[in-house]
Design a protein around this nucleic acid. Structure first.
Lengths: 119, 119
DNA sequence: TGCATAGTTAGCCAATTAGCTAACTATATA
DNA sequence: TATATAGTTAGCTAATTGGCTAACTATGCA
């Protein structure tokens, strides 16, 4: 019960929903890319990612200074939830806009991007 | 996006999850029964039910003094979500305890029950 | 080694939320 | 008609949460 409500709470925030939607379309995204997508500070993005990691939806790996996040996709219930979410958000206006932004964000060279986008 | 996050927010509270779990097992429950189940005041229960009604998961009908709530089950996405939830909560400890309490609550005569349980 | 950079954590603030009590509304009853 | 009853709404309190800035940690580079 507690883990279920935590999962719902995690997804009850629109910025976090946008993150999950983005990670459903990209294998992996860097913290700076997500920060840029959401147009919030790195500190806030980091906290949101902490919530998603804590509820099991997302996991991270570090590569030198860069932290990459991806969906865990390791449990059947979470996969089913993501499938449901994918269908509900397929034609969502915000997600559509994010797709365009993400195409631009991910087409930048990583060093250039992180230099440009951090704080 | 907004309605999705509202749905997740609604389900992000444990008492509201318990209500939805109860309504998955009983066609319809009276406000006083839910109040008794959750062991909170009628005012708080009423507010929780307002949240569930607002996000579309639950609807109510009034019969003299009594207000009955039931799951709407009128949209495919919500049905799928309830199916998912039903599977995740099938063996949940809290839901199991609630089943026992609900059996007792629903076996009471309504007038007796409302007299006994309100406030 | 000192400075720069990416990301995290701590703490502050404002907004939101779950609990409560009291007041209110709608219905029943003596 | 006055009182009782079931449920809702308003408002208060404490806790939580999303935003921020500043400080901190880990890594890179001159």
């Amino acid at each position: 019960m507690e883990s279920i409500s935590q999962l719902f709470k995690a997804l009850g925030d629109q910025n976090r929903l946008r993150v999950v939607a983005a990670l459903m379309e990209y294998d992996e995204l860097c913290a700076c890319q997500l920060t840029e997508l959401l147009q919030i500070t790195a500190a806030t993005a980091s906290r949101h990612m902490g919530v998603l990691v804590a509820c099991g939806l997302v996991r991270s790996r570090k590569e030198s200074r860069w932290v990459y996040y991806r969906l865990t996709q390791e449990s059947r219930p979470l996969l089913e939830m993501l499938d449901w979410l994918s269908r509900q958000l397929a034609n969502d206006a915000t997600v559509k806009q994010d797709r365009i932004k993400l195409a631009a964000i991910t087409s930048c060279d990583k060093n250039e991007l992180c230099k440009k986008y951090t704080c």
